[in-house]
Design a binder for these strands. Structure first.
Length: 224
DNA sequence: CTCCGGCGAG
DNA sequence: CTCGCTGGAG
């Protein structure tokens, strides 16, 4: 797996083309945490509307947001889609923050990475990608976030198999990269940028892609 | 495997 | 109008 590719080289190619993506820099850790749940299979532009509504309502911390009745929360986050299930998932996460850490995200993120990751994964509605997004982008902890774009980009280039699972792909990145929060942050953001603008699900723009020099002969690999 | 769902791009 | 979206649960 991975062939002879250097992940640092891939990162460099993407960074040279796209520059810094400054993901989740100005927002509070709380907004990042909320956004990580709301963004599940959803365009970020829709999540921003929901976050903006919560901000306008002054719901800027776990206890405040958890005090909102579930049906009201559903209406607040409605623009993000999946609003019923996301309201429930969000409340599951908030309840955890409150009961386990007194509603203090600062306290929560002082927990050892591996330990906190397991705790987050035990919450109904928090899967591997959401957990890692919270840990990396809200907690600044060095865990690599894998997503559908990462999978698509690396499988199409033949660097990993199409049937690779989340943890194996995550371990692949973390085994070849230093545990650097800033690097993980920027790398994932750049892969999302590439996935959105070039490595489309249908009709990828390989000719103009920053990674075109790594394209296999005869075009990108496809799932069997 | 299906469902959850509003929303914007094309 | 259709498609896909910084997934996860049942």
């Amino acid at each position: 797996m991975g062939k002879d590719v250097s992940l640092y080289e891939i990162f460099q190619r993407l960074f040279e083309r796209f520059g810094p993506q400054h993901w989740w820099p100005g927002e509070t850790p709380f907004e990042v945490l909320v956004g990580a749940v709301l963004v599940q299979n959803t365009a970020w532009s829709n999540v921003e509307k929901a976050i903006e509504r919560l901000r306008e309502a002054g719901l800027t911390n776990p206890k405040a947001l958890y005090s909102v009745p579930e049906t009201e929360l559903e209406e607040l986050i409605r623009p993000a889609g999946y609003y019923r299930i996301k309201a429930r998932r969000l409340r599951n996460l908030l309840r955890f923050c409150i009961e386990r850490y007194g509603g203090s995200l600062e306290r929560m993120f002082r927990t050892p990475l591996k330990e906190l990751r397991e705790e987050l994964l035990s919450i109904n509605g928090i899967g591997p990608e959401t957990a890692d997004s919270i840990l990396l982008y809200a907690g600044n902890l060095p865990t690599f976030v894998v997503d559908a774009y990462t999978h698509r980009i690396f499988a199409r280039h033949g660097w990993v198999d199409f049937d690779i699972d989340y943890h194996t792909l995550k371990d692949y990145f973390e085994s070849q990269l230093e545990p650097d929060t800033a690097l993980y942050n920027e790398f994932h953001a750049l892969l999302v940028k590439l996935g959105k603008d070039y490595c489309h699900k249908k009709q990828p723009r390989c000719e103009e892609c920053p990674l075109r020099e790594y394209l296999p002969e005869g075009g990108p690999y496809e799932p069997v």
